[in-house]
Structure formats: structure tokens, C-alpha cells
Amino acid sequence: MLLQFVINGLITGLLYSLLAIGFALVYNTTKIFHLAAAGLYVVAAYIFYSAVSIFHLPLFAGALVAVAATMGVSLLVDVLVYRPLSKRQSSVNVSLISAVGVLTILVNLVVLVYGNAPKVVENSLKSTYTFGHLILSQPQVWQAVIGLLSVAAFVAFIHYTSWGKRFRALSDDEVLYTTLGYNVNQTRTIVFLLSGAFVAISSCLNVYEVGMDPNMGMNILINALAAMIIGGIGRFEACILGGLTLGLVQSLVLMQLPSSWQTGVTFLILMLFLFFRPQGIAGYKQRTV
């Protein structure tokens, strides 16, 4: 019984980690509090739904279409909104407010096209696998496998290419970054494409299991934000640690409390971290003076 909850929690946590990575890629490099990621999450879900349920593409192809399209929209958001605002050296609050605007636009475009009613990707009953006392549904297996592969690919990308360092350099000082001969726009393009991809992967894996509605984005994003804070802001790998921790704790809480308390509990944990360990589990205190 306990093992079942632990595994469920870790798999959910993996999905939080993916979304947190999508958010942190933007937040750590550009300082934009990228709430529009919640909108991208919804957009990805509905493209996936259209591809599979309306155009009858196979699941994998549908997911690929969704990921590619979301990457495009993500880049578009940067090029049309964030980038010009950065050029004007707008304040953090201004970019946050404009992110709220983008979020509202994306979500309501989806409502305009698909309506408010919940949708599922596939109506068929999904098979389950049994390992001893452990029962995993087919979507959960996909979540675990693709989630782990994506996370591994990301860690490898950050560690074994120069991009990891360049993202960090960009977040430290944009002007210096330009003077060193790097192209900020090019780097931002990579950041937003990658971010869109991770948001979309997380979205597709999740909605394949539980379905979707246009207002789900913000609720899931705040879990990812909590994961990012718990893990430690400023470090990409910490998102993974934070996501898994959060998923695990939520799952264990569900053993005791009805699920409607989940968000409250999540935010209680988040607040505890904010107040008592704002640098997160893996973070460290820096000289700020």
C-alpha cells in the first residue's frame, strides 16, 4: 500500500519536475516570472487532443505535433512580448503582468475553439500492469519512462554542452553576455524552444492519463513553482529534486486527507520553505550585499 503511494507520488513528481524545468529555463535566464507557461501547458494539451482524437494520428505522432507546436508558440510569446519588453528594460513586475496577459489570451483562445467542457485524449479503457502488490496503469508507465528519459536528456544537455554554462552566464549579466560575443537573441530562442518542449511533454503525459480542461494550467503550474522553490531557485537540477519531493509528499498526504486539500497542503509546504529555507533543499546562501 505504502509502496503504491510512493511510486504514484514519484511519477506525479516527475511531471512536476518537467514543468518546473520548463518554467525555470525561462525564469533562471531572463528573470521573467513566466506564468504564461500555464497557458502553453493548456495549448499543448489541446493540440495533442486535436491531433489524436480529431485527426486520428497515432499517440506518438500526436504528442510530437503537440511538442513541436508548443515550442513554436513559446518562441512566439518571447519574440512578440517578452523580448521587446526586455529591450525596454521593463521592470520585473511589468513582465509578470504581461505574462498574466499572455496567459489569459492563450487560455481563452482555447476556450473559444474547444469550449469549457473537459476532454479526454482517448476514451478507451487503459490497461494496467501488476508488479507484485504494485499496480501501474499504462499511462503511468509512459509517464515514468518518457519522464525519466526527458529528465536525463536535460541533465546531459546542461552538463555536457556549453549551453548550461551560457544560460547561467546570461542570467548573471545580459550586457556582459553580449560583450563576450554571444548572441542573446539566439540564446533566448534556444531557451524558449526548450522551455516549450518541456512544458508540452509534461502536459501530454499528464492529460493522456487524466484528461483536460482549459483552466487546469494555473493549478498545475503552481505545483511546478512550488517544486522549483522547494528544490532551490537558480539551479536547474534542483527542479527535479523539488518535483519528486513534492509529488511524494502530496501522495503521502493523500493517504490521510481527501484530495481537495491537496493544493492547500502544497502551499503550506511552499510557505514553510519560503519562510524557513528560501534557498530550497539544494540551494546555498550567497553574498548579496
Binding site: L85, S95, T104, I105, V107, N108, V111
Partner: peptide, 21 residues
């Protein structure tokens, strides 16, 4: 009307952040 209204809010918000933050 409902989603359109929200889209207009969103657009207004973005435009205002550009023109008059």
C-alpha cells in the same frame, strides 16, 4: 462573448505594458 472578453482583457494588458506600464 465570454472568452472573447477575456482575450480583450489579456490583449489590453499586454498592450498597456508596452505603451504605458
Amino acid at each position: 462573448a465570454a472568452p472573447l472578453r477575456e482575450i480583450i482583457y489579456g490583449l489590453a494588458l499586454v498592450v498597456i505594458m508596452f505603451v504605458r506600464p
